[in-house]
Design a protein around this nucleic acid. Structure first.
Lengths: 193, 193
DNA sequence: GTAATATCTAACCGATTGTTTAGATATATT
DNA sequence: AATATATCTAAACAATCGGTTAGATATTAC
């Protein structure tokens, strides 16, 4: 990801573009299952180029997570800016499903998938990134719940945890269940919020 | 798993016992991440013995899933026999968490984990086993919900789907969240059932 | 046009993957 | 005790893993 001033030959690929491809492959298959050979094919460049641009498979994965983060950034901003309280949380849930359905078809949520794959791992780089994701999400959810003056702080925390876990279940479910079932699930999730 | 009548030398291990060890290793790490070397160490026998008893790594994994099934069989039976309606579903949720906490400490649910790992796979043997699991569970949940005469069939189906997905989220959450948060989650899940 | 050099291809690296096999060892049958 | 054979150890198998490198190629600066 370094730009040289005295470049002798131009890269034949866009780093942003091949990274996006890599991200989608990791998204579909997870980290371990995705081999360098698969990445070469999907990214359309060979190992040398991958290593010169991203350092290692692990580095490429970390960049892919950042790329994913920037992809969902729009959703988070919309979510954060909304002043519709609880309703905005539900909207965010629907938006998340839409994004992963359109962008990733049946791949679920990269964060949830990675969360699962690295649950027993000791890869602190990945795990801290995942935690940061979850903390950010929880903070937004909490702020939306607090907009309802009838909820005390204990209720807010309980409901925030509930919704965070529900989001996980939702992401996993969206990979295999019908849209109608998913909609029912979301609606029922918010019935007692 | 074949017994010979004209055995010339006795096995130095119990297939049931080494299978249980293998199952726990798969449970903790998933299929791909668990290597034959790790299995040799954990099972206490070498590759030859593993292959002569289980045919292949894949065969060993399939047997491990069956072993897991027999482990949760008791819970399913208690669940099925109970005539407490919705309350029995909640009890089953708590029982599941207890089992995975005691037996597997922080490993979650082997079915949910496998479900996630094989979501994009084309391994029909594994996938059909997972589906059978989910169908069985859904059928029991449906039968419990039907015990409430105020629920029409549409509501029963909606709530069954909801609970099935919630169970997935719960299993994933139980790997990382505190018991108190998990309890809150379960209680809130059943607030609108 | 020439020199310098970044990027390309493609072969190669050692380590590890799941799996097989040759040969040593132990036991049941005769 | 001798024979047969199931099970053991340990080495080897081809294939693939992530990662590196030598040399060809293309482009910039002069």
């Amino acid at each position: 990801m370094v730009a040289f001033t005295d470049m002798a030959r131009k890269k034949e690929y866009s780093e942003e573009e091949v990274l996006d491809r890599a991200m989608h492959l990791f998204w579909r298959n997870g980290y371990e299952t995705t081999s360098m050979k698969m990445l070469e094919k999907e990214m359309g460049i060979n190992k040398f180029s991958i290593y010169s641009s991203f350092g290692s498979k692990h580095g490429l994965f970390v960049e892919s997570l950042k790329s994913y983060k920037s992809k969902v950034k729009g959703l988070f901003e919309k979510f954060e800016k909304s002043n519709k309280g609880v309703e905005s949380i539900k909207e965010f849930f629907y938006d998340s499903i839409s994004l992963t359905k359109i962008e990733g078809s049946e791949k679920g949520c990269l964060v949830t998938n990675t969360y699962n794959e690295f649950a027993e791992s000791e890869d602190d780089v990945i795990k801290s990134q995942m935690e940061a994701f979850m903390i950010t999400l929880k903070e937004i959810i909490v702020s939306k719940l607090r907009m309802d003056p009838t909820k005390d702080e204990i209720t807010v925390q309980k409901q925030a945890n509930y919704l965070l876990l529900a989001k996980h279940g939702l992401a996993a479910a969206a990979r295999v269940n019908d849209p109608k079932e998913i909609e029912d699930y979301i609606e029922m999730t918010f019935q007692n919020i």
